[in-house]
């Protein structure tokens, strides 16, 4: 639309649309911008800049000294590797276990189906935090087969391991529910057609159902990474079950910055370092993120 064809109201209308949206954008962005710019400054500079717009600008004595200090204070790469490993395992095993369970509930006839489905619906409203106390008690007493060289040994207690951070969080009632719902919307008769071609259930599931269900797999992957209490954002659970430093994930690392004197520049550098990877992934797959959370019905 050129200026000549523009109605007199249009410019005013545009202002009315964009002004509130921009103000809201500032509201949502300012803490994040502040976090990144403060991470480049000394504590003295951060506080000196606080009462002007300089707080949001990388000005004054800026540098990467805080980032260097973070690497001195915490084993950052180790924490990062732990978080990536745990997140990948919880997500990957979760996709297999939850989708297969959802498949059995949505498209197969078997005794006990109604009971299992009822239990899954009931656990949907059970917040994880309510059972965290007995959970710790339970995992502290569970057996595990470890290996000393090649000799298997029976160990008691899962505390201070990777598997205590992974196995309890593989199953997810909400993911099962989403899978079941999606699978039941697929066309009828897929299994019968496959059976006539001689395909067994596992083959039908893997070769026909999974390729048809990519959107729900994307949704569950994104929801697991962003909202699960055991993946990238894991904090309370590893804080309680993992004491050894070499197994801890990134969020627990924030504890290391509040021991004697808090250097806020370092804190900002560390939280920028653990936030930016997720933000980068989000911006790269922004449409997929939003579409996934909205569910299948959203057109864009």
């Amino acid at each position: 639309m050129t200026a000549a064809t523009m109605k007199p109201r249009t410019a005013a209308r545009r202002w009315w649309i964009y002004a509130p949206m921009t103000l809201l954008a500032v509201f949502f962005l300012f803490p994040i911008v502040f976090m990144v710019t403060a991470s480049l400054k000394t504590d003295h500079q951060i506080f000196a800049d606080m009462d002007s717009l300089r707080a949001f600008l990388p000005v004054g004595e800026i540098g990467l000294a805080n980032y260097a200090a973070v690497f001195e204070r915490v084993p950052f790469w180790r924490f990062l590797a732990n978080s990536v490993f745990v997140t990948a395992c919880v997500t990957a095993f979760g996709l297999v276990v939850n989708s297969m369970c959802g498949y059995a509930l949505a498209r197969m006839r078997w005794k006990g189906r109604a009971v299992v489905f009822g239990f899954i619906i009931a656990t949907l409203i059970l917040p994880f935090d309510t059972t965290i106390v007995p959970m710790v008690y339970l995992v502290a007493n569970l057996p595990w087969i470890g290996f000393e060289g090649l000799r298997p040994v029976l160990e008691i207690g899962w505390l201070n391991t990777y598997h205590v951070q992974i196995i309890p969080f593989i199953v997810n009632a909400f993911a099962i529910f989403l899978f079941a719902q999606y699978f039941s919307s697929l066309p009828k008769g897929l299994e019968e057609a496959a059976a006539m071609d001689g395909a067994g259930w596992l083959r039908t599931y893997w070769r026909i159902i999974v390729p048809l269900s990519k959107p729900v797999f994307a949704t569950v992957t994104i929801l697991t990474v962003v909202t699960s209490p055991a993946t990238w954002n894991a904090y309370l659970w590893p804080l309680m079950t993992v004491q050894s430093e070499e197994l801890r994930p990134v969020m627990v690392g924030v504890q290391y910055f509040f021991q004697l004197d808090t250097d806020w520049g370092e804190v900002m550098a560390y939280i920028s370092m653990i936030t930016i990877p997720m933000v980068a992934v989000f911006i790269a797959f922004q449409r997929a993120f939003i579409r996934s959370i909205a569910g299948a019905g959203m057109k864009d």
Binding site: N98, A104, M108, R109, V116, T123, M135, L138, I170
Partner: peptide, 23 residues
Amino acid sequence: EQRAARAFALPGIILLLLFVIGP
């Protein structure tokens, strides 16, 4: 179908019993 369905659902049910219902 009965047997296959149980096998499909079993890992999820075991984990659910152990880590959600159990606690």
